[in-house]
């Protein structure tokens, strides 16, 4: 194994450019530019800071797996329904190729299973922006519905972390029906007297906002996340007018009364486990 692989240029093109400029080579992936304050951040610093900008607190998007590591106690997560994978139910043109591409990046648009948060057994669903922007297809809806049904049966609280561009249009009406199905499962869980916490992350839009994202007993959100039913571009097109500053950020939506609290990533886990305890859920033996 080449110990110095990480400092070596990626390809010959880069290496010849290096020689010409005669400057020390720093691999690009060591740096990342914050899209909000434009500060160049050392990737390792940013990662250590839970993928939050060390300069302006901008919350970078993280994958479902990273979020699970952030919230679930170590080695406590057992995945369920991993065998369910999206397929081209309506023979929608081009969808097979899109799925193939998406499946290289992530297994599915949501990961579901049981974990412990601060020792408390919890059913958790984490959506994944890496899979077709977390769009809600039949499998997304089915996995979330099953998670709520399991939690109702096992009398567990549910935490759902949302990130979604909305319904997945390649699954046509079947994706729309997931909104009703998941809402039904949430209602049954709620009627059983069990706690449901949602964590809205950037972006949460469309059919997900108009269903389980907005149905939590307690709705938390990460700072500056886009939370919308109709996205800003759609509204600008219909209204032909500029939108107010900070429109549809989580802070804005909280001010309008639709989010309970905006919580920074660093405080998310402790906030959730406090809430779980206050609802009488006990740590597992």
């Amino acid at each position: 194994m080449d110990l110095f692989a990480f400092v070596k240029p990626k390809n010959e093109l880069e290496s010849s450019a290096e020689k010409q400029q005669n400057v020390p080579f720093v691999p690009e992936e060591m740096w990342i530019k914050c899209p909000k304050c434009n500060t160049m951040l050392l990737t390792t610093d940013m990662e250590e800071n839970l993928h939050v900008c060390t300069h302006c607190d901008h919350h970078f998007r993280i994958s479902a797996k990273q979020r699970l590591r952030l919230l679930a106690d170590k080695h406590s997560f057992t995945e369920q329904d991993a065998q369910l994978t999206s397929s081209n139910l309506l023979d929608f043109p081009g969808y097979d190729e899109k799925l193939k591409k998406a499946k290289k990046k992530s297994n599915e648009s949501v990961i579901c299973g049981e974990c412990r948060i601060g020792g408390i057994p919890t059913e958790i669903c984490v959506m994944d922006a890496d899979f077709m922007m977390g769009s809600m297809g039949t499998v997304t809806g089915e996995k979330i519905t099953r998670a709520f049904e399991r939690a109702t049966e096992n009398r567990l609280p549910v935490v759902v972390c949302t990130v979604s561009g909305g319904a997945r249009m390649q699954e046509g009406i079947l994706s729309l029906m997931q909104m009703a199905k998941t809402s039904g499962a949430v209602k049954r869980h709620s009627d059983a007297g069990l706690l449901y916490i949602t964590v809205l992350t950037d972006p949460t839009t469309g059919g997900v906002t108009a269903s389980f994202a907005m149905e939590g007993d307690i709705i938390l959100a990460e700072p500056n996340a886009l939370v919308a039913f109709a996205g800003p571009r759609v509204i600008e097109q219909t209204m032909r007018q500029k939108l107010p500053k900070d429109f549809q950020t989580s802070e804005f939506v909280m001010q309008k009364g639709f989010i309970d609290a905006v919580v920074t990533r660093g405080k998310l886990k402790q906030t959730i486990s406090k809430l779980l305890k206050m609802h009488g859920y006990k740590e597992a033996e």
């Binding site: 994202a213 919308a228 039913f229 209204m239």
Partner: peptide
């Protein structure tokens, strides 16, 4: 559903 500023502000979703 109407996609507009007021609708979003009053919680269309």
């Amino acid at each position: 559903a109407y996609p507009g500023i007021g609708a979003e502000e009053r919680g269309q979703g």
